Measured scan of single mutants.
Amino acid sequence: TEVDLHLGDITIKLKDVSEEIVKRAKELFKNGWSAEFVKKWIEEAVK
């Protein structure tokens, strides 16, 4: 499945990412993480 994760003005296309990771990524962004950091976190999380 593909998900578009909207973080501010940046959209990250996610492939084969669990709902849990998407939820967590949104929380991290809301908590002040930059979109770049969230993207890196996701990449690490799906390895």
Rank of each mutant, 00 (worst) to 15 (best):
T1L: 14
T1R: 12
T1N: 14
T1F: 10
E2P: 07
E2I: 14
E2M: 13
E2V: 12
E2L: 12
V3E: 10
V3G: 07
V3N: 07
V3Q: 10
V3A: 10
V3F: 14
V3M: 13
V3Y: 12
V3S: 07
D4P: 04
D4Y: 12
D4V: 15
D4H: 15
L5T: 02
L5E: 03
L5P: 02
L5Y: 02
L5G: 02
L5R: 02
L5V: 07
H6K: 13
H6G: 04
H6W: 08
H6P: 06
H6N: 08
H6L: 11
H6Y: 06
H6V: 15
L7A: 02
L7K: 01
L7H: 03
L7C: 05
L7F: 08
L7R: 02
G8L: 04
G8M: 04
G8W: 04
G8E: 04
G8F: 03
G8Y: 03
G8I: 04
G8Q: 04
G8R: 03
D9S: 10
D9P: 10
D9I: 10
D9K: 08
D9E: 11
D9V: 09
D9R: 09
I10D: 05
I10R: 04
I10M: 13
I10S: 05
I10W: 06
I10H: 07
I10N: 04
I10A: 06
T11M: 06
T11G: 05
T11Y: 06
T11P: 03
I12H: 03
I12Q: 03
I12C: 05
I12T: 02
I12S: 03
K13E: 05
K13G: 06
K13F: 10
K13W: 08
K13P: 09
K13C: 11
K13H: 14
L14N: 02
L14H: 02
L14F: 06
L14S: 02
L14G: 03
L14Y: 05
L14Q: 01
L14M: 05
L14P: 01
L14R: 01
K15T: 14
K15H: 13
D16I: 05
D16Q: 07
V17H: 03
V17G: 02
V17K: 01
S18R: 06
S18T: 07
S18I: 07
S18Y: 05
E19A: 11
E19T: 10
E19P: 13
E19Q: 09
E20F: 13
E20G: 08
E20T: 10
E20N: 09
E20M: 11
E20K: 07
E20R: 09
E20D: 13
I21K: 01
I21W: 04
I21L: 09
I21N: 01
I21A: 02
V22P: 01
V22M: 10
V22K: 04
V22N: 01
V22G: 02
V22D: 00
V22E: 03
V22Q: 06
V22F: 13
V22I: 14
K23I: 10
K23G: 07
K23V: 12
K23D: 12
K23L: 15
K23T: 15
K23C: 10
R24M: 13
R24T: 09
R24L: 10
R24D: 04
R24Q: 13
R24I: 08
R24H: 12
R24S: 06
A25R: 00
A25T: 01
A25Q: 00
A25C: 03
A25M: 03
A25V: 03
A25E: 00
A25H: 00
K26Y: 15
K26R: 15
K26H: 12
K26E: 09
K26W: 15
K26I: 15
E27H: 08
E27K: 08
L28Y: 08
L28K: 03
L28P: 00
L28Q: 01
L28W: 05
L28A: 02
F29Q: 01
F29S: 02
F29A: 02
F29M: 05
F29E: 01
F29W: 12
F29T: 01
K30W: 06
K30Y: 10
K30I: 11
N31F: 13
N31V: 06
N31G: 09
N31I: 09
N31P: 00
G32R: 02
G32Q: 01
G32T: 01
G32L: 02
G32V: 01
G32N: 03
G32M: 02
W33Q: 08
W33D: 03
W33N: 08
W33E: 06
W33L: 10
W33H: 14
W33T: 04
W33V: 06
S34I: 05
S34F: 05
S34L: 05
S34N: 07
S34R: 05
S34P: 09
S34C: 05
S34W: 04
A35Q: 05
A35C: 06
A35R: 04
A35D: 02
A35G: 05
E36F: 06
E36W: 07
E36H: 07
E36N: 07
E36R: 04
E36L: 09
E36A: 13
E36M: 12
E36K: 05
F37K: 14
F37E: 12
F37L: 12
F37I: 09
F37T: 10
F37Y: 15
F37S: 12
F37C: 07
F37N: 11
V38R: 00
V38M: 02
V38C: 05
V38N: 00
V38A: 01
V38G: 00
V38D: 00
V38W: 02
K39T: 10
K39L: 15
K39F: 15
K39A: 13
K39I: 15
K40F: 10
K40H: 10
K40R: 13
K40E: 10
K40Q: 13
W41M: 03
W41T: 00
W41E: 00
W41N: 00
W41S: 00
W41Y: 07
W41F: 08
W41G: 00
W41H: 00
W41V: 01
I42K: 00
I42A: 03
I42L: 10
I42T: 02
I42V: 09
I42Q: 00
E43G: 06
E43I: 15
E43C: 10
E43W: 13
E44C: 15
E44F: 15
E44T: 09
E44R: 08
E44N: 10
E44Q: 10
E44K: 08
A45D: 01
A45K: 09
A45Y: 11
A45P: 01
A45R: 09
A45S: 07
A45L: 09
A45N: 09
V46H: 06
V46Y: 06
V46L: 15
V46N: 05
V46I: 15
K47W: 04
K47E: 09
K47A: 14
K47R: 14
K47P: 04
K47L: 13
K47N: 11
